[in-house]
């Protein structure tokens, strides 16, 4: 386990380093200067660029960026004078985090219930209904769900607020939009795991022993069936962060996603870079955690990985 943990942490750090480097050079390669829109002369523009260190060679800038990054300094925004990227993150991240967390909880709950139901029911209508719903849910992307839900519940029926983060009703539509796709995936994973697990010997034994169905499902099978779902959580984190780009823009929520989309529209390069690095780090971190947790729960995973990796 210790070897596996160490290896996995090293891979995570390497990924983070690659992400930072690639993101840094890509933002430097982007055409145009972030300051050329202002009504300033060439000389003033050059002076501003010098102040931000943009007149230095790429490699020197890169070195500076890395050393600042290690001290937790992601630089200053180009377009919002006096605001540092860390300010933006510390303001926006809690909102996004809250929504993402709620969406994860929702999709885990509903997805597990639907998956178990689909695997255990003998009614064909229920099986097909859930199957059709998961296909629909994963075929229609969240940037279609978001305006559709907004239109139906916010504008036509007028039962839910359309924007802002004032009270709890504001969270229903965005969280629902975010959760649709992960719910479908969790349903599918749970269903597959359940139909596999239910045929195994320990279930037969538990039945023969006379245990109740509910007990078998909840205590014995669910424990084994949750591993694939847990493994999916890293991917889900990535999905929820990028999904927040759409959802937060549509529902005007002041979170990371909206900041990111705005910073793209404004060509605010330090903010784009800083947010990319931060979100990448979050996803890499969650990936790392879920992988370690899976390896801890299921020794087979770490054996397979360490033998396959040598």
């Amino acid at each position: 386990m210790a070897v596996y943990t160490l290896k996995r942490i090293l891979t995570g750090l390497l990924s983070l380093f690659v992400l930072v480097s690639v993101a840094f050079f890509l933002t430097r390669l982007m055409p145009g200067s972030p300051f050329e829109t202002g009504n300033s002369s060439v000389q003033v523009q050059a002076e501003i660029e010098a102040e931000y260190g943009l007149d230095q060679p790429f490699l020197v800038q890169y070195q500076m960026y890395l050393s600042n990054l290690l001290r937790g300094d992601l630089g200053m925004s180009y377009k919002k004078p006096g605001t540092s990227v860390t300010d933006v993150i510390s303001r926006a991240f809690p909102v996004t985090c809250k929504m993402g967390g709620l969406a994860v909880l929702f999709s885990l709950g509903l997805g597990t219930i639907c998956g178990v139901w689909q695997a255990l029911t003998r009614q064909k209508a229920v099986r097909n209904g859930i199957f059709l719903a998961t296909i629909l849910g994963s075929a229609i992307p969240n940037f279609v769900w978001a305006p559709l839900l907004l239109l139906v519940f916010g504008l036509k029926l007028k039962i839910l607020p359309v924007a802002g983060t004032g009270n709890w009703q504001n969270f229903i539509l965005p969280v629902l939009t975010l959760a649709i796709y992960p719910t479908c995936v969790v349903t599918r994973l749970t269903r597959n795991a359940f139909s596999r697990e239910m045929q195994k010997d320990y279930v037969v034994l538990a039945k023969a022993k006379g245990l109740g169905k509910l007990w078998i499902v909840c205590v014995h099978v669910l424990k084994n069936a949750c591993i694939p779902v847990l493994q999916y959580m890293g991917e889900a984190a990535a999905f929820l962060l990028t999904g927040s780009f759409v959802v937060e823009s549509v529902f005007t929520i002041p979170g990371l996603g909206r900041e990111f989309v705005n910073s793209i529209a404004n060509r605010d390069y330090t903010l784009i870079l800083g947010l990319t690095v931060f979100m990448g780090a979050v996803v890499i971190g969650i990936h790392l955690l879920t992988d370690l947790l899976c390896a801890f729960l299921n020794p087979k995973v770490r054996l397979e990985l360490s033998s396959g990796g040598e």
């Binding site: 995570g12 992400l19 993101a23 982007m30 055409p31 990028t242 784009i272 979100m279 990448g280």
Partner: peptide, 19 residues
């Protein structure tokens, strides 16, 4: 593959299309 897989791909796809 491990390293590429750990990074959310949409992030650098966005940067790449900007470049």
């Amino acid at each position: 593959a491990d390293v590429v897989n750990a990074i959310p791909s949409l992030l650098y796809v966005i940067l790449l299309t900007l470049v």
